[in-house]
């Protein structure tokens, strides 16, 4: 039996699935991801000097639990200095630390405590 008629639908389905997968993969891409994956250049047991390019870490110049810190974080995101992943990490860290403090502690008290 001739199954040639199946070629086109198969190609279309594969195209749709592959396109969806790649689009979703691009969606999750962020600068923080670069250099985390396996590299063709550097082998594990190489005796050569390893050169690693890393993205500049976010410089937190203001102490946490400060309104200015949050504002600075937002501005850094807006100016493109950090991406959404870094922003997300910082906010998660912020919230997790916040959760460790007693619920009745006011923001003012938190700020004072940090100082």
């Amino acid at each position: 039996m001739d199954y040639k008629f199946l070629i086109k639908p198969t190609v279309y389905i594969i195209s749709i699935l592959a396109s969806c997968w790649m689009t979703l993969k691009i969606e999750t891409l962020s600068p923080s991801d670069f250099n985390k994956g396996p590299s063709f250049v550097h082998k594990k047991h190489s005796t050569h000097i390893k050169y690693q390019f890393v993205s500049a870490p976010l410089k937190v110049t203001y102490p946490p639990f400060n309104k200015i810190y949050l504002k600075n974080l937002c501005n850094a995101y807006k100016d493109g200095k950090i991406d959404s992943t870094v922003l997300d990490d910082e906010l998660t860290r912020y919230i997790s630390i916040l959760k460790n403090y007693p619920a009745n502690m006011s923001m003012q008290a938190l700020n004072n405590k940090e100082k």
Partner: peptide
């Protein structure tokens, strides 16, 4: 043509995204 069709679908997906 098949290559174009694949790229076309991918472009539309990226455009929607």
């Amino acid at each position: 043509t098949l290559l174009f069709q694949f790229c076309g679908i991918f472009t539309i997906m990226l455009g929607i995204s």
